[in-house]
Design a protein around this nucleic acid. Structure first.
Lengths: 223, 223
DNA sequence: TGTATTATTTTAACGATGTTAATTATATTT
DNA sequence: AAATATAATTAACATCGTTAAAATAATACA
């Protein structure tokens, strides 16, 4: 009974394709069981023969969108030389992807995910999407000693949260007012994180490059 | 005809109170014209005699919630001495407010605001909420030279975006898994921004102006 | 005070939404 | 070709925001 599976997967594909097209073109707000089914060429109730509910269907789009995001980022930096400049460009390209498709941003970071069968995997994919998209850059910078290894974890977190906050404010709160200002703010933030995080340690690391214990001294005050 | 205005304001208050209670207790998801009206003790259609639509009503709650947020932050740090430690505590208290009321977080940063009469003011209030809540701390740190004046703008942006990204991931993507981990990540992020942003300048300032300096040494290796 | 007018509140209704049950159409098997 | 299993569609329900019509309450005037 292999035919059954093939046909079922094909049917799921029709609905998934329709959902993805709608999501990219119209965003999450204007997606519905009926709009998806109409685009797929079936009645709305047919959808429930192939998916548990609408939530499961739309979160099955995440994997595909992630791959599209990754390939778009890789393509936008493929001509650049590896290094910190390319790392920064990858982060910018990642942000640009969500500017281009605000509906995918909402799907990735806003829409509550109910009880999808693979909820944990989807969450992990989303959580590490920026890190994974920049994987090559991180690996290169670390192996070449361009960045101190023990601060890379912090830098990844900082970038993740900063990009997320910037995108949320721009897409949902019109801050800043123009795309040019958004790019400007993003650049400033990325530079501050990559160039200035543990800047003392970073400088030292550059000088001695690799293989030695890295000591970073942080000075705070308790008053 | 002053009575007319008084009575109208009172009526609006009934609905606003109901909306605020629901928002704090149940969140944005379970708020509706009918649930608000029921709690206010009127029929659902009566709401439209006092508000243009549901959007206008719920965004009129923002002002009130902002003030509640501010007073809660101020109260939580009122016993602390002014300075960088209190600044950090204010940021944490700000984040805690939204952890306590996830519905208010969604209202402030996620829910699309349509065409409210005072849309611009509401957006400005939201955009600067963290800065304003910490206003006293920023002013003190700057006037005392605890922080370099020319990096405060960057620090504010960094804090705003980082706190927003952290909250979004924690409230909507279960990352990190526990509240304790969230607080830990928030502390790391805040420390990195406040202590290490332009660390050269910041360090110099600290050494000359602060009584006791706490030096923490972190040792890692990079291979 | 009793009626006419105005203001206020409620009920009915519309078009969408997600989802399920009943019904029809299609394909498979005997 | 008839009986059965599978797939797809229509009907229906409860919810949502919103508007129009109906009912109630308050006020003004005689």
């Amino acid at each position: 009974m292999k035919n059954k599976e093939i046909q079922e997967q094909r049917m799921r594909g029709y609905f998934l394709d329709a959902a993805r097209e709608l999501l990219k073109a119209e965003g999450l707000r204007s997606i519905s069981v009926r709009s998806i089914a109409e685009r797929a060429g079936y009645s709305y109730a047919t959808l429930y023969s192939y998916f548990k509910d609408l939530n499961e269907l739309i979160f099955l789009c995440v994997q595909d969108f992630y791959e599209e995001c990754k390939s778009q980022v890789l393509q936008s930096v493929q001509r650049k030389e590896k290094g910190i400049r390319r790392l920064k460009a990858s982060v910018r390209a990642y942000a640009d992807f969500f500017i281009q498709y605000p509906g995918i941003f909402e799907l990735f970071f806003i829409e509550k995910i109910g009880n999808a069968t693979n909820k944990k995997q989807v969450l992990a994919l989303i959580r590490h999407s920026l890190d994974n998209v920049c994987e090559e850059d991180w690996h290169y910078c670390m192996s070449q000693g361009l960045l101190p290894a023990d601060s890379i974890g912090l830098m990844k977190s900082q970038l993740r949260h900063t990009v997320l906050g910037l995108l949320l404010l721009y897409l949902h709160r019109d801050v800043p007012a123009s795309y040019a200002d958004f790019v400007s703010q993003l650049n400033i933030a990325v530079n501050a994180i990559v160039d200035d995080t543990f800047s003392g340690a970073a400088t030292a690391t550059k000088q001695t490059t690799v293989n030695n214990a890295l000591i970073s001294v942080r000075i705070g005050n308790n008053k």
